[in-house]
């Protein structure tokens, strides 16, 4: 009995530590985003004079006349990088999922391109991304894709494709081939069998893989930093508030908060699919 209670207490403590560990930076970020310039470096969680200045600075830097005026020349309203990031991440996700699905289908049903090659594609994720920076910059310069959001989207699609393939292959492997064969025998074409039988069943897997890829594209900084100049995505924009002139901690916190809202909203909208996706293998037993 005592052991049981003790075990529960220990579990509670561990969980509490974990929660504090994860939540504190987020709380700090929220608090910081509402603090005035003078308060940024004070160690209190509750802002004394809550202000929306940081957010105004974020969305319309031109309208600011206060202390921030020195920075406004270099900053654009955050809505533009936000839209760019949405376009980049969404495009990358759609491309990676579409190509990834068909590659995974081929790998699962026809063992194409062979398990070695398929495993080999993971290699790009095993090396530090910095290794690829130089060749990619050369490619992008040659292709005139520098500072082009479609270029970034293509790059993200290419680098995350291997995840899409591996995640979706697991889902397709779990679908008995008999379902497709039954569809064929009832008069469906192979493509109809894929679209009406396989895709509806792997949809949760596509959602999981899609969210994963979206988040990776959303938060990617290194390549975005190197490959863009004026057309920066959100991740780069967030980093821009720390400048040579000085660090706008409060504005950066507000930017980070805005930046984390989109993935949260998406996650909320698709949570039903997420649960099915994460438990797919388990349900079928």
């Amino acid at each position: 009995m005592i052991r049981k209670i003790l075990a529960k207490v220990v579990i509670c403590i561990v969980l509490a530590v974990a929660v504090v560990w994860t939540i504190t930076p987020v709380m700090w970020m929220i608090s910081l985003s509402f603090k005035t310039y003078g308060e940024w470096r004070t160690p209190s969680l509750i802002p004394h004079n809550p202000t929306l200045d940081n957010y105004i600075m974020l969305f319309s830097p031109q309208s600011i006349t206060t202390i921030f005026i020195a920075y406004t020349a270099v900053l654009e309203p955050i809505t533009r990088p936000l839209i760019r990031s949405l376009i980049i991440s969404a495009t990358a996700t759609v491309i990676a999922i579409i190509i990834g699905f068909f590659t995974a289908y081929g790998a699962s049903r026809y063992n194409s391109p062979g398990s070695f090659t398929l495993f080999f594609t993971l290699l790009t994720r095993m090396l530090p991304p910095a290794v690829f920076v130089t060749p990619i910059v050369i490619y992008f310069t040659t292709l005139a894709l520098i500072d082009n959001i479609i270029g970034l989207a293509l790059l993200y699609a290419a680098t995350t494709l291997t995840y899409a393939v591996w995640i979706l292959k697991g889902f397709i492997d779990a679908i008995p081939i008999e379902w497709e064969e039954a569809a064929l025998l009832e008069g469906a074409s192979p493509l109809q069998a894929i679209f009406k039988v396989v895709i509806p069943i792997v949809r949760p897997g596509m959602v999981v893989a899609g969210l994963f890829i979206f988040l990776m594209s959303w938060t990617e900084l290194l390549f975005a930093l190197v490959l863009t100049n004026l057309n920066v995505p959100l991740s780069v924009q967030v980093s821009k508030y720390v400048t040579a002139v000085g660090a706008l901690w409060g504005v950066q916190a507000a930017a980070a908060l805005v930046s984390s809202i989109i993935p949260l909203v998406i996650g909320y909208l698709i949570q039903r699919h997420l649960i099915t996706g994460f438990t797919f293998g388990l349900v079928r037993g």
């Binding site: 008995p176 008999e178 379902w179 064969e181 039954a182 569809a183 025998l185 009832e186 008069g187 469906a188 074409s189 109809q192 009406k196 039988v197 509806p200 069943i201």
Partner: peptide, 26 residues
């Protein structure tokens, strides 16, 4: 020619009506 398999006979994402309708729909 149609084949009834030993298992995995029914599409899990469709109801019985949609299952039966499948061949006619395609």
């Amino acid at each position: 020619v149609c084949l009834v398999f030993q298992e995995y006979a029914v599409f899990p994402h469709m109801n019985v009506y949609e299952n039966i309708e499948f061949g006619l729909k395609v």
